[in-house]
Amino acid sequence: MSFLKRVVILCYVTLGLFTGSFFLLAFLNFLDVRSMMEIFYAVSFAENLKLVTGIIAVVLLFINFIFYSVFSTGRKRENALAFDNPDGRVNVSLGALEDIIKRLTGRLSEVKDSKLNITISKKGLKVKVNMVVASEVSIPGLTSRVQDLIKKKIQDAIGLEEEIEVEIFVNKILPDQGREKVQSDKQETQDVSEPGIPFHGYRA
């Protein structure tokens, strides 16, 4: 975000906060509007007070800008992993890592669908995976394999030496389609092979 855009956003937020607070306090009778107008009137005609008020306003805006820059930069860093190369610093988006892992799990025939969420904590990287798996697989074996593959893929991709925690949640197990098809064909065969009872009419 450019410097000018940050300044505009900061001024807009500050002005909106000040205006909203002023009218709210006046509405709740916590602020004497007439006294405030007299103070503004006195400041506007007193050069010394005008200078002091201007300096205070600039200092407050500068402090707010510093806080805004620090918090916005910190939030941006939380959405990316950073490491140093000999030629400079590299930032890797967490979304890019999620795409890599999703393609990795998509190659596994046992995993029918997956959704991922990667977060950064003080302990390291945390990967949450929601999976839809087939019914004929061993869930402990599959989840252990997926965890190892994800850890290895992240380490190979960015060379991360910190701890990587992979949490897997199996939210659905799809039935065996082959077994369902056999049962369906068997049911259709039984329906066709069952002889119908002939109707001989009503007897008196």
Rank of each mutant, 00 (worst) to 15 (best):
88 G>V: 02
68 Y>S: 09
13 V>S: 02
187 Q>S: 06
53 T>Q: 04
128 K>A: 10
28 L>W: 11
74 G>I: 01
44 S>N: 04
2 S>T: 13
190 Q>N: 12
202 Y>T: 15
66 I>Y: 02
181 K>E: 14
71 F>T: 15
184 S>R: 14
123 K>R: 13
22 F>G: 04
94 L>V: 02
181 K>Q: 07
70 V>L: 13
128 K>L: 14
53 T>G: 04
93 S>V: 01
135 S>H: 03
113 D>T: 05
167 E>H: 07
101 I>N: 03
23 F>L: 15
147 Q>C: 09
3 F>Y: 13
134 A>Y: 03
162 E>C: 12
14 T>P: 00
83 F>R: 10
63 I>K: 05
5 K>C: 02
101 I>K: 01
39 I>S: 02
142 L>R: 10
178 G>V: 02
103 R>S: 11
188 E>M: 11
73 T>V: 06
94 L>P: 01
198 P>T: 10
61 L>C: 08
127 V>L: 13
102 K>T: 08
193 S>K: 13
58 V>H: 02
203 R>T: 12
145 R>V: 03
128 K>Y: 14
201 G>S: 05
41 Y>S: 08
32 D>R: 05
52 V>M: 08
103 R>D: 14
159 G>L: 10
2 S>H: 01
151 K>M: 09
47 E>W: 11
51 L>M: 09
35 S>Q: 14
109 S>R: 12
43 V>E: 09
146 V>A: 14
86 P>W: 03
12 Y>W: 06
91 N>Q: 06
139 I>Y: 12
128 K>V: 09
125 L>K: 06
183 Q>N: 11
65 F>K: 01
26 A>H: 01
65 F>H: 05
112 K>N: 13
184 S>L: 08
47 E>D: 11
202 Y>I: 15
177 Q>C: 01
157 A>L: 08
119 T>P: 02
46 A>P: 00
73 T>L: 11
161 E>H: 06
42 A>D: 12
58 V>N: 04
9 I>F: 04
176 D>G: 13
111 V>M: 03
147 Q>H: 09
137 V>C: 14
175 P>T: 06
187 Q>A: 15
14 T>G: 04
88 G>T: 03
174 L>H: 10
8 V>H: 06
35 S>E: 12
191 D>I: 03
166 V>R: 08
63 I>S: 10
169 F>Q: 14
115 K>H: 08
116 L>R: 03
171 N>Q: 13
127 V>F: 13
141 G>K: 14
95 G>C: 02
13 V>D: 06
81 L>Y: 05
14 T>E: 10
55 I>Q: 05
75 R>A: 09
18 F>K: 06
45 F>R: 15
200 H>P: 00
62 F>Q: 00
11 C>N: 08
113 D>Y: 12
135 S>W: 06
154 I>C: 09
153 K>T: 13
113 D>F: 09
184 S>N: 04
126 K>Q: 05
30 F>A: 03
35 S>R: 11
151 K>R: 15
51 L>E: 13
